[in-house]
């Protein structure tokens, strides 16, 4: 049964250093929520606050209806998957998975069954009697996931669970994680610095930098309508063009830039005024090379350096026109 996780003005300091600063966010029941940001942004610290390994100096954390802010980790009923997996080397795979159930005094028969089910879910049944050091990285990762899931936690916490895997395995595992979370109907909080992971499987995500949530929203929102140059730059590929806002009307803003006048509907118009300096982010996939000058907005000239385009497009000396169909504004320079 999924519950919401609510963070209210959570602040965590280490000495004079504020690592997490007044973070408020509610993770909805059954949601796969990502905390995304560069290293040192405070995302793991925030996750460890939720798990109870750190006690925040200010603010509160609710899991469901319970205020868990000052509860010790063992009383919180979260299931955590550690970056290093933290599988106990002196126990077998089955013993690792059964540990949480033992503590919950689950009867032996039920315990065996739940362990078996969990191992089936992560496809590790055959390795039940192996020790962790006999497993590959991907297998260890799946055991760690099974160990966290088998206790049916109120919420699943994943701390960079895929960062120690190779690229191919990462792709497989991230869809696998989403499948398992959705199948179990779990509220899950997933920490990563890999924006591709977040964009591909998140329901919603929060972009952290310097201990502050820069933007929170669905992958689509964050990608299409970044609210700062940092977010635009951190999520996906972006080209920045500096410019000055000429006018704002409704959700439309016209920006004068070095490459021409750009009309944007993606600018957070409630935040900007005419005359302000902004950086316009151009996603590479929205730039199209047109044969004929298009009639609608956002046309600008460009020079193609042949080596950067396919041979089919044009010769190096050509001066075709570029058209931007969609673009995203970003406030600030």
């Amino acid at each position: 049964m999924a519950v919401a996780v609510r963070l209210d003005s959570v602040t965590k300091r280490f000495g004079d250093l504020t690592v997490v600063s007044r973070i408020s966010v509610t993770i909805e029941p059954g949601e796969l929520f990502f905390l995304l940001g560069p290293s040192g942004c405070g995302k793991t610290t925030l996750l460890r606050c939720i798990a109870g390994f750190y006690i925040p100096e200010e603010g509160s954390i609710h899991i469901g209806d319970r205020d868990v802010t000052r509860l010790s980790p063992d009383a919180r009923d979260t299931g955590m998957v550690f970056q290093s997996y933290a599988l106990w080397p002196h126990m077998t795979v089955a013993q690792n998975v059964a540990f949480g159930l033992e503590l919950r005094k689950v009867p032996k028969a039920e315990m065996d069954q739940r362990v078996a089910e969990a191992l089936v879910m992560v496809k590790m049944t055959e390795r039940a009697q192996y020790k962790p050091n006999q497993l590959s990285g991907g297998q260890q990762q799946r055991v760690a996931l099974a160990r966290a899931l088998v206790v049916r936690p109120q919420c699943l916490l994943l701390d960079e669970p895929l960062s120690n895997l190779d690229a191919k395995l990462r792709l497989d595992m991230r869809t696998e994680i989403r499948r398992i979370c959705k199948q179990a109907g779990l509220t899950a909080i997933y920490v990563t610095h890999d924006q591709k992971e977040a964009l591909s499987i998140a329901d919603r995500m929060a972009i952290l930098d310097k201990g502050i949530i820069q933007q929170c929203g669905s992958p689509e929102e964050v990608y299409r309508r970044p609210n700062s140059k940092f977010v635009a730059n951190f999520i996906g590929e972006a080209n920045f063009v500096e410019g000055k806002i000429l006018s704002v009307e409704g959700d439309r803003a016209v920006i004068e830039t070095a490459i021409g006048r750009i009309t944007s509907t993606a600018l957070p118009t409630e935040l900007v005024r005419a005359g302000e300096q902004v950086a316009v982010s151009l996603r590479p996939e929205v730039i199209h090379v047109a044969e004929e000058p298009p009639t609608d907005a956002n046309v600008f000239n460009g020079q193609i350096h042949g080596t950067h385009l396919s041979r089919r497009s044009c010769a190096a000396s050509d001066q075709p026109r570029y058209k931007r169909r969609r673009h995203h504004g970003a406030k600030g320079v």
């Binding site: 798990a51 109870g52 390994f53 010790s72 980790p73 063992d74 009383a75 919180r76 009923d77 979260t78 299931g79 955590m80 550690f82 970056q83 290093s84 933290a86 599988l87 106990w88 080397p89 002196h90 540990f99 949480g100 503590l103 919950r104 160990r147 966290a148 206790v151 916490l157």
Partner: peptide, 24 residues
């Protein structure tokens, strides 16, 4: 993290010490 993983699954200080730390 080996101890944290135990705490996360509901093991108190002494249980963690007895089941995880001391054996390791």
């Amino acid at each position: 993290t080996l101890e944290e993983a135990a705490a996360n699954l509901g093991a108190g200080f002494l249980t963690t010490l007895r089941r995880i730390t001391v054996p390791l």
